[in-house]
Simulated assay, not measured.
Amino acid sequence: MHLRPPGLPGRYVALGDSFTEGVGDPSRILPNGVRGWADRVAERLAKSAPGWEYANLAIRSKRLRHIAAEQLGPALAMEPTLITLYAGGNDIMDAGTNVVELLSSYERLVAPLSATGARLLLFTGYDVEVSPALRLLRKRNHAYNDGVRAIAERHGAVLVDFWAMDAYRDRRMWAADRLHMSKAGHKYMAAQVLDLLGVRHSLTPKEWDPAPRQTLREWEYAQRRWVHDWVLPLAQRKLRRVTLGDHLQPRWSEPVRVPPKGGLRRLVKAAR
């Protein structure tokens, strides 16, 4: 692991799927139309120590095998000092996934990242009880999370234990699809990562009044709307074997120097 003196900039490379790409946190300016927790982490790093560089290779819908095949090589070539990896969540939702085999593949992905000496952060997945329709996947998800914890310990990685974050029990931390974090959820995740890195920041948890109780009619309408808007399209994509990430490119495919003032949006505006 890189033992860098406090206050020195480095190079942060983020790998993964929609979780790290930033889906659920829309932006009219930034690449792929999203922002997300990783962008926020990069911007706070740059404010803390100007000169930080950042690449985000994550693309929505990618399975672990895609991340290993498409993102690992470029990430290693960038010689990062900080790496975050979230992978396997989409595999968990696929029918027939063998968790033992998945974790074996996951560790084969982690090993070369760990060997770089960069500070490596690994994430557990959130408890899929967030959506009642996904309760059948809980046992598989728990086994995966236990495996990630063990792999993080074996490879000296920092564990970001998403599964244990009670703040996400509030439905307002989730986007309308109930699978991705909302803007508030991404901000909260950025704060958790920065805290683990020991980076000072001003991101504070959203303070909400208690969520209003839904009537039975409101709940039924919300369920029907969710199934129509999100569940059925997802099922149709699975049948057609297409994903929302098929024609997307990484948001920040090469390291960019993050402006300490104005952040990544300043880069995009300057390019325009």
Rank of each mutant, 00 (worst) to 15 (best):
L72M: 00
W52H: 15
A77P: 02
W52D: 14
W52V: 13
L64W: 08
E70D: 13
Q71N: 04
I67V: 09
A58H: 02
R63H: 04
I67A: 08
G73N: 04
R63G: 01
A55Y: 06
H66R: 10
A75F: 15
E70Y: 11
T81R: 14
I59G: 03
P74V: 01
L64T: 07
L57P: 03
G73C: 01
A77E: 02
L57H: 01
L76S: 15
A75Y: 15
K62T: 00
R65V: 14
L64C: 12
I59C: 05
A58I: 00
A69F: 05
A75G: 08
K62Y: 03
R65H: 14
A58N: 06
W52M: 14
L72D: 04
L76N: 15
L57K: 00
E79K: 15
P74W: 08
A55M: 06
Q71Y: 02
R63L: 05
R60Y: 05
L76R: 15
A75M: 12
N56C: 11
H66P: 01
L76K: 12
S61D: 12
L64D: 09
Y54D: 13
M78W: 03
K62E: 03
R63T: 05
I59D: 04
N56R: 06
H66M: 12
A58G: 07
E53P: 08
S61L: 03
L72I: 00
A68I: 01
R65Y: 12
Q71P: 10
E53F: 03
N56I: 04
G73V: 05
G73S: 11
Y54M: 11
M78R: 09
L76F: 10
S61T: 11
S61A: 11
H66T: 11
L57G: 08
P80S: 09
S61H: 06
A58C: 07
W52T: 15
I59K: 04
N56H: 00
H66K: 07
R65M: 10
S61Q: 11
R63E: 05
L76I: 14
E79I: 13
I67T: 00
R60Q: 00
A68L: 06
M78D: 05
A68H: 09
L76W: 13
A58R: 07
W52F: 14
E70M: 10
L76D: 13
A68S: 14
R63S: 01
L72A: 08
R60K: 03
K62S: 02
S61F: 02
A68P: 07
I67Y: 04
A69H: 09
E70P: 07
Q71K: 00
A68D: 10
H66D: 13
L64K: 06
A55R: 04
M78G: 07
L57Q: 00
E70G: 06
Y54P: 12
L76P: 15
P74G: 02
P74N: 02
A69K: 07
I67D: 09
A55V: 06
R65A: 15
P80R: 12
L57S: 05
M78P: 01
Y54G: 13
M78V: 11
H66G: 04
Q71A: 02
A68E: 09
P74L: 03
R60I: 09
S61R: 08
L72K: 08
I59V: 10
A77I: 03
L64E: 07
P80H: 11
